[in-house]
């Protein structure tokens, strides 16, 4: 173990630097603190900012945030792992969440989510670009099935429209 760690040390240091929270983040954090009686109350919004900026909440980020709001690192870890919108591992840059709860399930969302997974697997261009998830009720059940595409709802979703959305994202990235 110890030896392996030494060997990886250089790599670790560079990746740590990459994960460092930005000056911008620290500035926004100061603004957020004004909204709450205690700094730790701003933990969820702070983590949202990190997740958005870095696509994950790394160990480095959790430690820096713990310092910033002055709580135990385990407190931050506990919070990050409790809520589904945060991830320890890096997520692909585009998010698609297909609701598979009650009303969407009744309207074929499970099948939709499975076909979507297959489609994204098969299209070479899509590789590594989309993070796919099944979500619980998104609160738009009158337009089932519903998908959350990054920060926008796609109502009455179907495979063709989802594919078009993915294609549009890919061409934008190019």
């Amino acid at each position: 173990m110890g030896k392996d760690r030494d060997k990886d040390k250089d790599k670790e240091l560079t990746s740590k630097n990459e994960m460092k929270l930005s000056q911008e983040f620290y500035k926004k954090a100061q603004e957020l603190f004004k909204d709450y009686p205690k700094r730790v109350h701003a933990l969820l919004p702070l983590l949202h900012m990190i997740q958005k900026e870095q696509g994950q909440i790394s160990d480095q980020a959790m430690e820096e945030v713990a310092d910033l709001v002055d709580v135990a690192i385990t407190h931050v870890q506990g919070v990050v792992t409790f809520y589904t919108m945060y991830s320890l591992k890096k997520r692909a840059p585009n998010y698609i969440g297909v609701c598979t709860n009650l009303s969407c399930w009744l309207r074929g969302s499970k099948e939709l989510s499975q076909s979507l997974l297959k489609m994204i697997d098969e299209e070479k261009d899509f590789k590594g670009k989309f993070h796919l998830e099944e979500t619980e009720c998104l609160g738009a059940c009158d337009h089932a099935p519903v998908a959350l595409c990054n920060e926008k709802y796609m109502e009455d979703a179907n495979l063709d429209d989802l594919k078009d959305w993915c294609l549009a994202k890919c061409s934008k990235d190019k």
Partner: peptide
């Protein structure tokens, strides 16, 4: 941040305080 239980009012308050 994605947790149904936070609709329960006391869980919601804990969440607002930056906790699970």
């Amino acid at each position: 941040a994605g947790a149904y239980i936070c609709g329960e009012e006391t869980a919601l308050l804990d969440s607002l305080e930056g906790k699970r």
